[in-house]
Simulated scan of single mutants.
Amino acid sequence: MLRAMLSQAVREELLARNVARLVQAPTPDREEIHPWTETEARAFLTAARAHRLHALFVVALALGLRRGELLGLRWSDVDLDAGQLRVWQTLQRVRGDGVVFGPPKSRRSRRVLTMPAVVHQALKRHRNAQEHERRLANGQWQESGLVFTTATGRHVEPRNLNTAFGRLIARAGVRPIRFHDMRHNCATLLLAAGVSPRVVMDILGHSQIAVTMNIYGHVMPAMQQEAASHMDAALSEPEPEAGDDADE
Results as ranks from 00 to 15, higher is better:
225 Q>Y: 11
187 A>H: 02
30 R>H: 06
21 R>M: 14
107 R>M: 06
117 A>L: 10
22 L>Y: 10
13 E>C: 02
89 Q>W: 00
240 P>L: 08
133 E>D: 13
68 G>C: 05
91 L>A: 12
34 H>I: 00
188 T>S: 15
234 A>M: 08
172 A>S: 09
237 E>N: 10
114 T>H: 10
123 L>I: 01
120 H>K: 07
198 R>L: 15
28 P>I: 01
232 D>R: 15
126 H>R: 00
5 M>N: 02
179 F>L: 05
38 E>N: 11
194 G>I: 05
76 S>I: 06
192 A>P: 00
194 G>L: 05
124 K>V: 14
86 R>C: 04
10 V>S: 03
87 V>F: 06
119 V>E: 07
159 R>H: 13
149 T>C: 09
227 A>H: 15
128 N>G: 08
70 L>V: 05
239 E>W: 13
227 A>Y: 13
163 T>E: 10
55 A>G: 13
17 R>D: 11
153 G>F: 05
3 R>A: 13
102 G>R: 08
187 A>Q: 00
6 L>M: 09
60 A>N: 08
34 H>K: 06
106 S>L: 13
20 A>S: 06
88 W>P: 03
14 L>V: 07
6 L>D: 03
12 E>V: 01
30 R>N: 07
203 I>Y: 06
173 G>S: 13
224 Q>P: 12
246 A>N: 13
90 T>A: 10
29 D>T: 14
101 F>V: 08
198 R>C: 08
144 S>K: 05
139 G>F: 12
191 L>Q: 01
102 G>P: 08
97 D>A: 15
136 L>P: 03
119 V>M: 05
175 R>A: 13
164 A>R: 08
164 A>F: 04
55 A>M: 12
119 V>N: 04
11 R>H: 04
101 F>I: 12
40 E>T: 05
169 I>D: 06
233 A>L: 10
42 R>C: 02
95 R>D: 14
20 A>Q: 07
24 Q>F: 02
132 H>T: 07
110 R>T: 12
214 N>M: 00
74 R>Q: 15
96 G>T: 12
229 S>I: 12
162 N>F: 04
223 M>K: 11
36 W>Q: 07
231 M>H: 15
106 S>M: 06
162 N>D: 14
241 E>N: 08
84 Q>I: 03
63 L>A: 10
209 I>Y: 00
18 N>F: 02
26 P>W: 07
55 A>W: 03
192 A>R: 13
32 E>S: 02
115 M>K: 05
141 W>I: 04
191 L>S: 02
184 H>E: 06
108 R>M: 01
212 T>S: 08
184 H>I: 09
51 H>G: 05
173 G>K: 04
17 R>Q: 11
130 Q>G: 06
109 S>R: 08
116 P>F: 06
148 F>M: 08
109 S>A: 14
182 M>Q: 05
239 E>K: 10
227 A>P: 15
87 V>I: 07
208 Q>W: 01
163 T>P: 02
